[in-house]
Nucleic acid binder design. Structure first.
Lengths: 233, 233
DNA sequence: CAATTTTTATGTTTTATAACAAACTAATAT
DNA sequence: ATATTAGTTTGTTATAAAACATAAAAATTG
């Protein structure tokens, strides 16, 4: 089955994966306790306030993790890419999800059953350490994001979001177009601003020659400018 | 030595501590590799961009962890109380500190040497799990804070900060006065607003009879109102 | 205890950004 | 193909919060 193959490759045979160095037996055991399923665009992966059943690993596609804020305005907390985990914070905290997850394009996500994962982790301190390191790194990102979102002005926040998209998803083959076709609303939710202001500021950037817009495609023309705008706030 | 005694009590003999259940040998080993020192008010505990040497545990006092934002305006990321860890995020991420820590009153902090801690953790999966759970819980707090700080209005943010102070430090013996005497500037840094607006909004709350002010002492008169203001944003 | 600095307080002005509105375009369904 | 809905764009107005200014009070220092 194709979906399981790509999952296996990504999770167990990629050197960046936290599962790369676990024993062959453990890999087989985890694989036996994993279920994959596919999601179409805009489908719910998990809902705020429900209980995690395992570690969800994104195998293909893109998923947004977001919280509803005051007045229905969403705040995107994180974007996931293939090979990344979703909802592991709640799992390890022993809590319900604090946010919801929705696919932003056709995706495949696989869930490693909680008890199977925990039993492997108990026997392999390195795996626990890798998870610890991963969570700690994400907490650092979250803290920096808090400061950026609260202190930078609209232009700085949008520029930072675009740089974040580039970092997370890279470019299409042209080496210029950001490989993520978000709606203007999602760009706004990522940058903590209204949709109107996201649109307006994007078109200002385009007028200034920093980026070029073709529908949802965003071409990065002057990345140095983008970095400068992000840094000055 | 008094400082070491209170540290020992807090870290190893309190049921809430992650170190409560480790072996007696491990406790002794960690204690041997721990150094305590005291800090006066407004003294630096660690500086952004430097390398952690171990796990810092606050034994007595209060410490603020903050980042400098655009235009010199600080953002308090977290407040620590006795029994809490400081700077463990950077330690477990294998990174330099992303924030600075400064005591806001006379404090004692003890550092468990990194390698000693790690070797105990490798042999005790439960300890790693406890740390994992602690980090994951904090990440949840951080994510919720991001949404609050970006979406709530000034009144909601200040009310939330006051509730957070109550939760973290509790009350003096009168059962009304928040047991934390922060400067107005620190209250502002915690609530993501200017000092002027923190002062103004505090005095509005006082006029409305929600709180009562006596210098830095804040008496909570109507906690239900405070919760309501925080919730409506 | 006078002098200086820091912190707190309050009033006024300015500005960034949200809120609202209206039209246009693209996507989806009938 | 046409109707309907969802998403994008641009302009205008309203407002929350910052910036600025000044003064009083409290804390610190010589």
């Amino acid at each position: 089955m194709k979906t399981e193959e790509s999952f296996k490759e990504l999770l167990f045979n990629s050197p960046e994966s936290v599962f790369y160095n676990i024993s062959k037996d453990d890999k087989e055991y985890l694989l036996k306790n994993t279920e994959c399923r596919s999601y179409k665009k805009n489908e719910l992966v998990f809902l705020e306030n429900t209980k995690p059943s395992g570690l969800i690993c994104l195998s293909e596609g893109k998923v947004k993790i977001f919280k509803e804020g005051a007045g229905g305005r969403d705040q995107i907390i994180r974007l996931s890419r293939p090979g990344g985990f979703i909802g592991y914070r709640a799992l390890f905290a022993g809590q319900n999800y604090h946010a919801s997850a929705v696919s932003i394009e056709v995706s495949i996500a696989c869930t490693i059953e909680k008890n199977a994962l925990f039993s492997v982790m108990k026997n392999d301190p390195n795996l626990s350490f890798a998870m610890l390191s991963s969570l700690a790194t994400e907490l650092g990102v979250s803290n920096m994001r808090t400061v950026s979102l609260t202190q930078k002005h609209i232009r700085g926040r949008l520029a930072e979001s675009l740089l974040f998209l580039i970092e997370t998803y890279g470019y299409f083959d042209d080496g210029l177009t950001i490989k993520a076709l978000l709606s203007r609303e999602d760009i706004a939710s990522l940058s903590n601003m209204t949709t109107s202001n996201a649109i307006r500021t994007l078109s200002t950037f385009a007028q200034e020659g920093v980026i070029a817009l073709e529908g949802r495609r965003i071409k990065v023309v002057e990345i140095k400018m983008l970095q400068k705008i992000s840094n000055i706030g």
